[in-house]
Design a protein around this nucleic acid. Structure first.
Lengths: 139, 139
DNA sequence: AGAAATTTGTCCGTATGTATC
DNA sequence: AGATACATACGGACAAATTTC
């Protein structure tokens, strides 16, 4: 089936659809987009066209793609909208780097790290715990 | 956007530019050329034109392209060092709740949790590690 | 530890429509 | 009209990173 492109190209329309899906929250921040293969069947487009659409979003900084893993929506780009009945409790403390964190930060095991913990409570139950680790205070 | 072709054809000029880059050592022997996709954006030429330019170099024996891999300069076995220019790396895995998380989520120790880890790298060094814990997969 | 499946990365060849010399 | 280049799209194939079994 040949493909004329009167008006808007296919890949742009697909990019728009996916962008809308991200903006609406249908695809949450940090979540995986459907695989290229899945998108080909959904939009009935070739893989090349799908990849072209994703490239648009990547260029906009909306998503990031990793070889062998998939394409994620960028958690930094999306601002967290304040939910209704959600409460957050934040606490910060100094901890010693365990082997896992030590290798990540390339420091010695036991080195000083800053841990910020955010506990998000929704409707009385803990929904999410976010722990952020940094080397220094600041930033 | 459209490009007239005064005098020398476009693909000739691109082939010259790439040949110069190889001769100058900007692209070392055995290294991969930029992908066709990258060259299209760099030279603002269509893929067909890029491929035409590469075909010229291939005809001159300057490069060799391998299906699914890319186009190499002067086939010679060398190691390619990828640039470290990553920004955020995301991985998701299932973990068992340790006592701390278990009390937060009010579940038994060892219960299934989803851990999402985001490693933010800036200038080659890890700046921030964010670990998000949830009970279920997304939302 | 290793094989298989999944998923993205890249290239190939082709085709058709659009636009400018 | 013809030549050149550009833009879009398809389907197929192999390569490489990751995950899963």
């Amino acid at each position: 089936m040949p493909t004329p492109h009167y008006g808007q190209p296919r890949y742009r329309a697909i990019a728009d659809a996916l962008r809308e899906r991200i903006a609406s929250g249908a695809i949450p921040p940090g979540a995986l987009l459907p695989t290229e293969s899945a998108l080909t069947t959904e939009f009935r487009a070739s893989r090349g066209t799908i990849r072209q659409a994703i490239a648009v979003l990547r260029g906009e900084g909306l998503v990031a793609t990793e070889h062998g893993r998939g394409t994620y929506t960028n958690p930094r780009w999306q601002e967290s909208r304040p939910d209704e009945d959600s409460q957050t409790k934040i606490r910060e403390r100094r901890i010693a780097a365990d082997p896992g964190l030590a290798t990540l930060f390339d420091v010695e095991v036991g080195a000083d790290l800053i841990e910020q913990e955010i506990v998000v409570t929704e409707d009385g139950t803990v929904g999410e715990v976010v722990r952020t680790y940094r080397l220094r205070v600041q930033q």
